[in-house]
Write a protein that binds this DNA or RNA. Structure first.
Length: 201
DNA sequence: CAGACGATTGCCT
DNA sequence: GGCAATCGTCTGT
């Protein structure tokens, strides 16, 4: 299996978000491998148009802040942030440097290191290990220490691997949990998933 | 420096 | 379906 290269990420977020479906998210943890197949993503921001749901557009008048700085940086790095006082979210920076583009990984299908996922998810049922953005972060032991991690680095502890295109159909719909975000961004269909997959959130 | 709120989850009715 | 948990980040005073 081949690690996804920088060029894969250095494209518009919506394109990367769809192409990530079926790829593998891998994590080296406790000397072992945890790996899952990506089945749900969301795109935030695009080069051409504003996205008021995106942290990079919403805060500080569209300028970087300490939290969002990574989002404005090079593609192929991890943007990990803390929310609701208890949850970590794992995103992948996409697009061009200077633009706030990222893809949120929302759900995985467990493949490797299932005992570690069960342990990290406190013994919950298999279906609840990775069917949500904060759940998969916990299952893969993703936290602040991985913010800014280089996903293309050969000896990194978190990366993505190429995989054949998915056989499932790709579905699209509005993004989840946008709260007070105004239209049209509240309803714009930038969430993508593999139709029928049981691990979609 | 105080106040509002969040790219969610899990428990309760 | 409703709602509390829990704290970092951002904003306005």
């Amino acid at each position: 299996m081949k690690r996804l290269p920088y060029a894969f990420y250095a494209r518009p977020a919506r394109q990367v978000a769809q192409d990530l479906l079926g790829k593998l998210l891998a994590r080296r943890f406790d000397g072992r491998l945890i790996c899952g197949r990506i089945v749900e993503t969301e795109a935030y921001c695009d080069a051409d148009e504003p996205d008021l749901a995106c942290h990079g557009d919403r805060a500080n008048d569209g300028r970087p802040t300490p939290r969002t700085a990574v989002m404005f940086g090079s593609a192929g790095f991890a943007y990990v942030y803390f929310t609701y006082g208890m949850h970590w979210m794992f995103n992948i920076v996409t697009g061009q440097e200077g633009q706030a583009n990222a893809v949120l990984i929302r759900a995985l299908e467990p493949l490797t290191g299932v005992d570690l996922m069960a342990q990290n998810r406190n013994g919950r049922s298999r279906r609840e290990w990775t069917n949500g953005p904060a759940k998969l972060a916990q299952a893969l032991a993703i936290d602040k220490s991985l913010n800014g991690a280089n996903l293309c680095q050969p000896d990194g502890v978190i990366w993505l691997e190429d995989a054949p295109p998915p056989s499932e159909q790709i579905a699209a719909g509005p993004r989840i949990g946008l709260g007070q975000t105004p239209e049209p961004w509240y309803s714009i269909p930038w969430r993508y998933w593999l139709r029928g997959n049981p691990y979609v959130s």
